[in-house]
């Protein structure tokens, strides 16, 4: 019976050794979702959405997320249409073949900040601001990494050649093209929460964790049931197995 566990342990061991990063390891923070059965703090994620819209969205897209998905954060359809209508996008060509802008609606994906990849690069000194939909999954220990990074802007140590970027001790190579985006009080929270830098960052990371893994809560709650079921089934199968084999020995 230990063979499965054993092979799994060996595998985990191999993977625990698979880490060779020169940048500083991100600081571990206890998010609402950090524990295996943790959930997304909806209020925090809603505030994070506000930070994203008012600060990040000017450069970073969120194209895999649709406004309708915001129902998952507790917004209703009217609220979602109100959020979406702040953004404009190209409509389908009309009967004359002209493309006219229209306001985004419920069913649209988050509107991208730039017309295309090159326009995004040109507007940002040649560094493309990556889409944030999957950022938490696209980095190792993503939530902690993004939090550490956004809090990790400091002056470069003496003699460190920065060039055109900014110094950040959590970035691989310690040079990041993005200037420090958040300083605290960048937004005025609708729910009255004090918008300190750390608060903003935690809220944003909570929001981005949700955009990366909208399935997180469903997955964990379904998982708990499935594992419990399989556990019971395994015991029953084991008992059946022992019964059947005990007949053989006689």
């Amino acid at each position: 019976m230990n063979i499965f566990t054993l092979s799994f342990l060996i595998l985990s061991f191999i993977f625990s050794l698979v880490s060779a990063d020169e940048a500083l390891k991100p600081e571990q923070y206890p998010f609402s979702f950090s524990k295996p059965l943790g959930k997304i703090d909806k209020n925090s994620a809603q505030r994070g959405l506000q930070v994203y819209i008012e600060v990040c969205a000017s450069c970073h897209g969120l194209k895999h997320v649709a406004y309708r998905n915001l129902e998952g954060l507790g917004y209703n359809k009217d609220q979602i249409n109100a959020i979406a209508s702040q953004f404009e996008l190209d409509d389908f060509p009309n009967d004359e073949g002209e493309i006219i802008k229209r306001k985004a609606i419920y069913s649209d994906s988050f509107v991208e900040p730039y017309e295309n990849h090159n326009a995004a690069k040109a507007a940002n000194n040649g560094a493309y601001p990556p889409d944030l939909s999957l950022m938490v999954k696209a980095r190792k220990d993503g939530a902690n990494y993004i939090r550490s990074l956004l809090l990790g802007y400091t002056d470069a140590p003496d003699g460190f050649e920065i060039g055109e970027g900014y110094y950040n001790k959590y970035m691989a190579g310690n040079i990041i093209a993005m200037p420090q985006p958040l300083y605290g009080d960048d937004v005025e929270y609708k729910d009255g929460t004090n918008a300190s830098l750390e608060q903003e960052v935690n809220d944003l990371v909570t929001f981005l964790t949700w955009t990366s893994m909208p399935d997180l809560e469903d997955r964990r709650s379904a998982g708990l049931k499935v594992i419990f079921f399989l556990f019971v089934m395994t015991i029953l199968f084991y008992l059946s197995y022992r019964k059947i084999w005990s007949e053989l020995k006689k």
């Binding site: 964990r220 998982g223 594992i227 395994t234 059946s240 084999w245």
Partner: peptide, 23 residues
């Protein structure tokens, strides 16, 4: 004899498999 033994092994393996899939 071996169908039940295989089923037991399968059920055990699935428990580990789905622990990874879900968590």
């Amino acid at each position: 004899f071996y169908t039940i033994k295989d089923l037991f092994g399968l059920s055990f393996a699935l428990t580990i498999f789905f622990a990874v899939v879900f968590f």
